[in-house]
Design a protein around this nucleic acid. Structure first.
Length: 864
DNA sequence: CTCTCCCT
């Protein structure tokens, strides 16, 4: 068996409420009286309570609604159609009479319609066109606990309308969870009406697996497969398992097929990217009556209901996108689910009878779960919403009353994207172009592309691209390329040669159908292309890359030379293609879809782009720059003329005459990278440096200049720059006379003081001029033959007689015999020992018993 | 080791 054994906690809790007959009817009278006197009411009732279909019809005859309609908001098209159909049947009517619906691509409404069920996008669009919501007396928000971006926006817009334009508009916010306090507060302390649901008890069993550190797909799959095996033996009926994503589903499926007898049990993956046929198969009962295991993403939490589920296995993880305002990109992350989500998942086992739920964590960890999922507004790309708000006249996150205001950073990022696209001005106000973009039923980036395409004679292609990017990828399969041309070809094949031709190109035919439909709708929103008049020549048609560049001007990729498939984006960020992708050889890409990743982004959809196309498309945004820099390799200052698009360098050319100032700056930075040793130091210059540093140490208050290596390196501009005129290479630097340059840091007075107080030589009793050696922080060293010092009592001093030198007293052969700063002490003491040794080694020299009276001599040869 | 879900 391909899965690990599993041990389960003996604890089991049960929740759920007893079955009763639609308890929602019991609270209808309360709902009526509350809504009659208040502008808003919150209705909280669990799934299965019937609130979606009961509440609108029950309120239809209210006097305050006379002559006005109900608008009900649903998060999904299917739910809108089902709810309208159910209500129409209740009234014994066709859909589109008293009860109708309006979703994208489809409307069933008539002048007789009193209840109109709409999806979220329809409502925000309608409010933009008709802010007063003329003829509407009540807006119902269904499934508000899902807290979609659009529902949050619609609620904020409704509240705005109610404060000014429409004091007779009422709201009913319906939610399946009990987190109603915040909504109630936002709606001026609206009353909360509580209903009960109708569901069966679900026994919950905790089966802790490995501790929940960072989840590995294989590890999650192993635990889920083990729990499924346990469920197969302990529980009857079908099993629904919740996993974070496709990778975990694949692994679990592999483990199960390896561990189960073939053919007896049907295993179905279920996730949004799957073909419609595969999804339908997963949702329906098995045609051969076999037991079923459904391996699903959170799609099965709300969007899809599966009949006959008795057992749920909950991994406790989900994958969701997190917007990163720094990069302006989203990344998918695997996270723990919320408590509300865990309850919702368990509830999926109790729709038709008592059920059972295995949770792959411990009961103790329940407390670590967040009570609710954060609303979408906290983690989404806000550019479309910010454009809608600008059109509404709102330019700041706090311009409306929100349940959770949009995060300021995300809001600002959206504004900056919209500014780049020309939809907003610097104040965040909408431009005429922005208004046109907001009227198109698509993301502002794609709207920008659609509107720009006419000029490039490519409106049809732009519609297809916008449709492709609005819907799920039509090419499935793990080996697919990121090249968007593949999708364009498949779509063309689908249109001209039918579904089989599309399938031959590995495209999903339902997907092609959806994309074609979306493309057609977008085309209808755009003006008909003007026929070229007389001898006007039509502009050459733009290709996919050029069009995508209009939508994603901040995501142009340039190949890096580090490895195949590595790109740098206009923002400076890195992004990679799989190395096997055929696009990977392209020098430039227009990137449409990518995941922010941790360090580097991952490119999922892109098109090749010619450099000439970039320069002509972004002419106004190109930066022409002259760059003068130190080239380490050649050790010279180089000048280049650059053509840049933000962080990308599109062209370089040598710069004939760089400005002297720029050359100097580059040369100085070159010296800084090479270090001070790159300058032509000689002993004389180093000695001068040491003498100045010594003087500064001995006379800290006397104003000696800072000339240590560190401070010289820091202050190159001040002391060295004036001597660098005309120089531009390491070779040129060799001509510098550092001694003279350093000396020039001293004024005349300091120079003569230096000669006096830190002299290069001292005259010793023999008459010789002997060199002093200076080392910063130490006394200067006078190395002199002992014989030359006869007769001198006191150690010579420098620095205005304050610093005794360190004497290295040498033998005639320059061997150090004694090191001392106390000459008098030496003559009186140690000399007499040294003398004996010297007499032995140098018998022909004169080694007097009385050095005080002896004649100093500089003669090297001994006396005859 | 290729990516959750949904909407105009």
């Amino acid at each position: 068996m391909g899965s690990a054994p599993i041990t389960c906690a003996a604890t089991a809790i049960t929740y759920g409420v007893p079955i009763s007959t639609l308890p929602i009817h019991e609270i209808i009278p309360t709902l009526r009286t509350q809504l009659a006197s208040r502008e808003a009411v919150v209705l909280s009732a669990p799934p299965g309570s019937g609130k979606t279909t009961v509440a609108p019809l029950a309120l239809l005859g209210e006097p305050w609604l006379a002559g006005k309609n109900i608008l009900m908001l649903e998060p999904r098209r299917l739910a809108a159609r089902l709810a309208a159909g159910f209500m129409a049947r209740q009234m014994g009517e066709e859909v589109g009479k008293t009860v109708g619906y309006r979703v994208r691509f489809e409307a069933k409404v008539s002048p007789a319609t009193k209840v109109e069920v709409v999806t979220e996008g329809v409502l925000t669009r309608r409010m933009q066109d008709d802010p007063e919501l003329a003829g509407v007396g009540l807006v119902i928000f269904d499934e508000f606990h899902e807290r979609s971006l659009q529902a949050d926006l619609a609620l904020a817009l409704c509240l705005d309308v109610m404060t000014g334009l429409r004091d007779d508009l009422k709201l009913l916010v319906m939610s399946a969870t009990l987190d109603t306090e915040a909504v109630s507060r936002l709606l001026n302390n609206a009353p909360v009406v509580l209903g009960t649901g109708r569901s069966y008890p679900v026994g919950v069993e905790y089966c802790p697996g490995a501790p929940p550190a960072q989840p590995q797909p294989r590890e999650i799959a192993k635990q889920v497969a083990a729990a499924i095996h346990k469920g197969l033996t302990e529980q009857p009926g079908d099993i629904l398992a919740f996993l974070p994503g496709a990778a975990e589903i694949r692994h679990t499926q592999a483990l199960l097929t390896a561990g189960l007898p073939p053919g007896e049990i049907a295993i179905h993956p279920l996730y949004g990217d799957l073909s419609l046929t595969a999804q339908t198969a997963a949702v329906q009962p098995d045609p051969k009556g076999r037991r079923r295991i459904i391996l699903a993403t959170p799609i099965a939490e709300t969007s899809v209901t599966i009949e006959g589920i008795h057992t749920v296995v909950d991994s406790g993880w989900k994958r969701s996108p997190q917007f990163d305002p720094n990069s302006g990109l989203s990344r998918l992350t695997t996270q723990r689910i919320s408590h509300a989500s865990a309850t919702q998942r368990a509830g999926r086992a109790g729709r038709r009878g008592p059920g059972h739920c295995y949770r792959l964590w411990s009961m103790g960890e329940d407390h670590g779960l967040k009570p609710f999922d954060p609303p979408e507004i906290m983690s989404a790309d806000l550019s479309q919403m910010v454009l809608d708000l600008a059109r509404w006249g709102v330019h700041k996150p706090d311009g409306l009353r929100w349940l959770d205001p949009p995060p300021a950073g995300h809001f600002a990022q959206a504004q900056s994207v919209l500014l780049t696209l020309g939809a907003l001005d610097r104040q965040g106000h909408i431009t005429p172009l922005g208004k046109k973009m907001a009227e198109l039923p698509t993301h502002p980036r794609l709207g920008h592309m659609l509107l720009g395409a006419a000029k490039h004679n490519a409106t049809d292609l732009a519609c297809d691209l916008a449709a492709l990017l609005s819907e799920r990828d039509i090419i499935k399969g793990r080996e697919r390329s990121a090249d968007i041309e593949d999708r364009i070809h498949a779509l063309a094949a689908f249109r001209t040669d039918g579904p089989a031709a599309a399938r031959a190109l590995e495209a999903d035919t339902d997907g092609c159908r959806r994309v074609a439909q979306t493309s057609r709708q977008l085309r209808e929103h755009l003006p008909k292309p003007a026929r070229p008049k007389g001898n006007d020549k039509a502009a050459p048609a733009a290709n996919a890359g050029e069009l995508l560049a209009l939508a994603f001007p901040d995501r142009i990729g340039q190949r890096r030379n580090e490895g195949r498939g590595q790109y740098k984006l206009t923002s400076g960020r890195g992004a990679v293609l799989p190395a096997h992708d055929r696009l990977a050889g392209q020098e430039y890409l227009a990137v449409a879809e990518l995941d922010a990743g941790r360090i580097e982004g991952r490119i999922f959809l892109a098109a090749p782009l010619a450099r000439e196309a970039i320069t002509s498309l972004f002419d106004a945004r190109l930066q022409r720059e002259e760059k003068v820099f130190w080239e380490e390799q050649s050790g010279t200052v180089k000048g280049q003329r650059l053509l840049r698009l933000d962080e990308l360098v599109l062209e370089t050319a040598p710069l004939a005459k760089p400005s002297a100032e720029a050359v100097l700056t580059a040369l100085l930075s070159g010296i800084r990278t090479l270090g001070l040793g790159a300058l032509p130091w000689n002993d004389k210059a180093r000695e001068l440096q040491a003498r100045i540093i010594c003087m500064q140490g001995w006379q800290p208050e006397a104003g000696w200049p800072e000339v240590s290596d560190a401070s010289l390196l820091e202050t190159l501009e001040q002391w060295l720059a004036p001597y660098l005129t005309g120089m531009r290479s390491a070779e040129h630097l060799k001509k510098l006379d550092l001694f003279a340059i350093l000396a020039a840091k001293l004024d005349w007075q300091q120079q003569s003081r230096l000669e006096r107080e830190a002299p290069t030589h001292l005259t010793v009793p023999s008459g010789s001029k002997v060199r002093l050696r200076y080392t910063p922080g130490e006394p200067p060293v006078l190395a002199v033959r002992l014989q030359e010092m006869f007769g001198l009592a006191d150690t010579p001093r420098v620095c205005n007689n304050t610093v005794p030198v360190l004497l290295h007293l040498l033998s005639p052969a320059q061997r150090p015999m004694q090191i001392t700063q106390d000459l008098r002490g030496f003559w009186e003491g140690a000399y007499h020992e040294v003398k004996k040794e010297l007499r032995g080694r140098y018998p022909k020299h004169h080694w007097p018993d009385d050095p005080w009276q002896a004649q100093p001599t500089s003669r090297i040869k001994p006396r005859k």
